[in-house]
Simulated assay, not measured.
Amino acid sequence: MDTYLLRVLCTLVEERSVSRTAIRMNQSQPALSTALKRLRKLFGDPLLIREKNAMVPTERALQLVQDAQVALNALDKMLSADEVFDPLRSERTYTIAMPDYLAPPFLADLVRRFRQSAPRSKLVTLPLGSEYDYEKALAEGQVDLVIGNWPTPPEHLHMAVLLEDEVVCLMARDHPLGKAGKLTAQSYINASHLVPLPYSSSQRGVVESTLATLRLSRSKQVSCPYFTLAPYLVGESDLILTTARHFAAYYARRLPLVIKPSPFDFPLMRFYALWHPNKHRSKAHAWLRGLLSDSAGVLKTVSGSA
């Protein structure tokens, strides 16, 4: 049992819908269905029963929700000590673990806001890697926030979506496919691709997952450990980089590159911030999350100006 399951239980009984609960808790519907299965097994009760177009809580569920709410309120009170926080006077150090697949204006805007609001505090950014245990780092307080875009983030962590962006193809302006008009599925598969190394060893990205469901694979001719280096390599070669529109748009305005719509119906890339429940009620942490949310608006502007 953990606080995540208790919150799922309370929200499910209140919303009486897995889909609405998923939206309210910023979780995927499959993740909520899995949590409901765990709750049913844990308490030996169906908890919610489908009747027509609604889910009706059992008597056991209604009893459990009362106790769960008491427990959650007590935990929230413990975690929300009367913290006095003034960013102008604070001398805290904040640590964010993040990859480099967000366009540079995001971090630049975050640093600007941070320096203006908290001139005495320090901001540390750490790189992510496939072997980096970010869940442990969050739980132990080594980092305050992690920025990610894995299709299925850990369900026990809090999440705030920074940007949802379409997947596009970036290539050199003189690339043969760049001059050929619309990019087709066959030409995409037959082309040579630059694929940045994954930031998670346990999860596939949106592109690889979608192609796998279609039983397709692309030719990964070059791998690169840095996203910010990838556009420069693409601009000097016959390679294609499949990435988010905001990232492609930023570099297409600065390098001899062209953006082509993807020939496949890839899901939107979702970029989000993750944090541990032990920091959720912290006023200083909430302030930092607010800065990230404000800076995310820059990414939307970059994406929309392509």
Rank of each mutant, 00 (worst) to 15 (best):
L62Y: 11
P57I: 06
V70N: 01
A54V: 14
E59V: 10
T93R: 12
A74H: 09
P105Q: 06
I96W: 06
D67G: 10
L64N: 03
N73K: 12
R92Q: 13
A61W: 03
L75W: 10
V65S: 07
Q69W: 04
A61R: 05
L102F: 05
L64K: 04
E91M: 08
A108E: 13
L62T: 11
A54K: 11
R60C: 08
L110Q: 04
V84Q: 15
D82T: 11
A74V: 04
T95L: 02
K77M: 03
L64G: 01
R60V: 12
M78V: 08
L110C: 02
L102W: 06
L110E: 06
E59L: 13
A81L: 09
D109N: 07
D86A: 09
D67I: 04
F106N: 02
M78L: 13
F106D: 03
K77C: 02
D67E: 15
D100G: 08
F85Q: 07
L62R: 15
M98Y: 04
Q69H: 03
M78F: 10
L64S: 01
D86L: 10
S80Q: 09
V70C: 00
V56R: 08
D86T: 14
L110I: 06
A74N: 05
V70K: 15
F106H: 06
N53P: 00
A71V: 14
P104Y: 07
E59D: 12
D76Y: 00
E59M: 07
F85A: 02
